[in-house]
Each structure stands twice: as structure tokens, then as C-alpha cells.
């Protein structure tokens, strides 16, 4: 599940899921929605496939790194990564394949995924965190 939070300049989201995989997928989905609303709706064919392998000190760092890497690949490959297959995902390591559909132009340029107030934690069985995108 995701939601938008209020912020003067940028876009802040709330992401949550019953597993780390759900959380990471939800945050990626919402980032894509900011970049190009509706871009993944009805996508059944993928134009490119990129592999990500990252390690970090904790789940928050891992999520920010994962989204940052997906964002960089979005701009370099000019593709929105609508689907992610996790080979491995722990609080400190991710190995995943991202599947993307090419786009012409994004609607909102996200400059970066920030660390501001991000804190992945498990509350009542749900993994959750806010994430702020710098626009």
C-alpha cells in the first residue's frame, strides 16, 4: 500500500507491506507513479531487463539504494521498471531483476531518492516507511 504525504517542494510517499518484498514493490510502484502516472497500467510486454545486486547496513539504506538504482536505470535505459523479481531480499541485501517498458518522456523529473526521514520499521506485522523524492 502507498499514499502521498504533504511536502512544500517535493513529493513524499508512505509505503508499507506485509513483507520486505511488498514494501520494496510498493515504493517502486509509487516512484513510477510520480515519474509517469499510469505508465505501468496494462503493461504486459517488457522492453528491457536489468539486474540489481546491492548490500547495505540496514533495511532503510537498502530501500533507498534500491530505489536510487532503479531511478538511475530509468533515466539511462529510458524505461519505467514496472515489475521486479526478487531472487534474494533480506534487510541488508537485495538481488533482483527489474523489467521495464520504454517511455518517451517522464512527466515529473525525480532528481533523487532522499534519506530524509526514511526509516524502515516493522509495526504490527507491517514493514513501513516514508520516502521523500527530490523534484
Amino acid at each position: 500500500m502507498t499514499a502521498r504525504l504533504a511536502h512544500t517542494t517535493d513529493v513524499a510517499i508512505w509505503a508499507e507491506g506485509y513483507s520486505l518484498q511488498e514494501l520494496f514493490r510498493a515504493a517502486l510502484r509509487e516512484m513510477n507513479e510520480v515519474l509517469l502516472p499510469g505508465s505501468c497500467t496494462g503493461v504486459t510486454h517488457y522492453d528491457c531487463n536489468m539486474r540489481i545486486r546491492l548490500q547495505a547496513a540496514d533495511a532503510t539504506a537498502l530501500l533507498i539504494d534500491f530505489l536510487s538504482e532503479a531511478l538511475a536505470l530509468t533515466y539511462i535505459q529510458k524505461a519505467i521498471f514496472c515489475y521486479v523479481y526478487f531472487e534474494r531480499l533480506t534487510e541488508r541485501e537485495v538481488a533482483a531483476n527489474l523489467y521495464g517498458a520504454w517511455f518517451g518522456e517522464v512527466e515529473n523529473e525525480i532528481k533523487a531518492v532522499t534519506w530524509h526521514e526514511a526509516r524502515v520499521q516493522q509495526v504490527e506485522g507491517k514493514w513501513q516507511t516514508p520516502v521523500l523524492f527530490d523534484l
Binding site: A57, A61, A72
Partner: peptide
Amino acid sequence: VATDAIRNMVEAMPRYGISLPDRE
């Protein structure tokens, strides 16, 4: 460049004994 640097510095801060109210 900024994304790369912040990631590096978040990792490096404990080595310099730096703790801040916001990782950003």
C-alpha cells in the same frame, strides 16, 4: 554525484564518530 556521495557518507559517518538527527 550527490546520490553516490550521500550513500558513501552514510556508511562512513560512524567511522568518524558522527551522529546526526537526519541522515540526509
